[in-house]
Amino acid sequence: MRFSRKYVIAAFVAVAASAVGVAVPAFAAETAAGKYVALGDSYASGLGAGDYGDSGSCKRSANAYAQQWANTHAPSAFEFAACSGAVTADVLSSQVGAITPDTELITISIGGNDAGFADVMTDCNLGSDSSCVSRNQEAQAFAQSELPGRLDGVYAEIRNRAPNARVIVVGYPRIYTLDGDCSAGLSETKRTAINQSSDVLGDVVSARSAAAGFEFLDGRSAFSGHEICAPGDDWWLNSITFPIEESYHPNGAGQNGYFGALVGITG
């Protein structure tokens, strides 16, 4: 029996991913891959997973889930527009131009920077339990009141530019396993507050993507059991690390996890 090159690649990816604990279908379905555009912030660009090439401050990693999908599915064209630090306004001003009417697949992770979750992590590392809880409550309030409109604007523009594209909104994971194996670091009170913010953000992004008619890949489910403090140190997220900007971002295993979840949706 002869297998196509794409079928063999998909099988190899499944075996390799299973070796690091990533759930991927035994044989990813072979599909005709048209143009693929990857949008979003640092979670989409791959900050934290290394190997950024000549992408400058955008920190587009060769290990990012989008790049892995493009490598294994050989789309007719691939535009990797995601950029570290991006907010919804940046997607509209400098990323959606990569979308053309013939685009068949779009992935996007956005919203965390709008709600100030980078500042949340800084404040929680430097401040008291009460200040951390308060800062998380502020971020949650923003995510619930202001972020939905911003997401709606981005999603509407994506649909306007590519009416027939399949759009997958990739959500953020929880940062911590609570009552986990960490013997040092942030208090359990701080970790709980941060995870509550992750849940609020995830719920908002999920609801707005559904309203737009898009699919949602829930990062909380994809990373379950692999957060910081998970037993066995099988963490898919960096804790405090250097360079400091890579802290609290998916590492190489985390990007593999996202990729496996994406393959589980797209084949």
Rank of each mutant, 00 (worst) to 15 (best):
S183W: 09
D218G: 15
R191G: 12
N195W: 02
L178M: 05
A253Y: 09
I244H: 02
G202D: 07
V205E: 05
N251I: 14
I240E: 13
S209K: 04
R208A: 15
P231Q: 05
T192M: 01
G180R: 00
L178P: 02
G232S: 06
E246V: 11
G254Y: 02
L262T: 02
L201F: 13
N251G: 13
K190I: 12
S247Q: 12
Y258I: 02
P250L: 10
A207L: 03
V263A: 08
D218E: 14
T192P: 05
A253H: 08
V204W: 04
E246N: 14
A211F: 03
S247K: 10
W235A: 08
Q255G: 04
S198Y: 02
W236M: 02
L178A: 07
T192L: 01
S239G: 15
D203Y: 00
S221N: 13
P243S: 12
A222N: 08
S198T: 09
G252V: 15
E246W: 11
R191L: 12
L201Y: 01
D199R: 08
N251S: 10
G213Y: 11
N195P: 03
D199A: 09
L186I: 12
A230L: 07
W235R: 10
I228P: 08
Y248K: 10
H249Q: 10
L178H: 06
L186G: 12
V263C: 07
E246A: 15
H249L: 01
A210I: 11
F259Y: 12
G260E: 03
S221M: 11
V204M: 04
F259E: 05
F214A: 13
A193R: 05
D179K: 00
H226F: 05
S183Q: 11
S187Q: 09
D199N: 11
L237R: 08
G219D: 00
I228K: 01
A193M: 05
D234K: 05
L201G: 07
S221P: 03
Q255I: 00
I240Y: 10
G225H: 05
S224G: 04
G260V: 04
K190Q: 14
A210D: 13
G202P: 05
G225N: 00
V200T: 14
S197A: 14
E215V: 02
L237F: 07
F223M: 11
D199L: 00
E245A: 15
G232L: 00
I244D: 01
S187Y: 08
Y258C: 03
A193F: 10
E245I: 15
E246I: 07
R220V: 06
E245N: 11
C182K: 06
G219R: 06
G202W: 05
S197C: 00
V205T: 14
G185C: 13
S247L: 12
Y258V: 03
Y248G: 01
D199Q: 12
K190D: 12
A193L: 03
N256C: 00
I240G: 01
G219W: 03
P243D: 13
I194L: 06
A210C: 00
D199F: 07
D218A: 14
S187H: 07
G180Q: 08
S221D: 14
Q196K: 13
L262F: 07
D181A: 11
I228D: 01
F214G: 09
P231V: 03
G225S: 06
G202Y: 03
L237G: 10
A253M: 03
S198G: 15
L217M: 15
A210S: 15
H226L: 04
G260P: 12
G185N: 14
G225Q: 00
S209P: 11
E215F: 09
C182V: 09
N195E: 04
D199Y: 09
K190G: 12
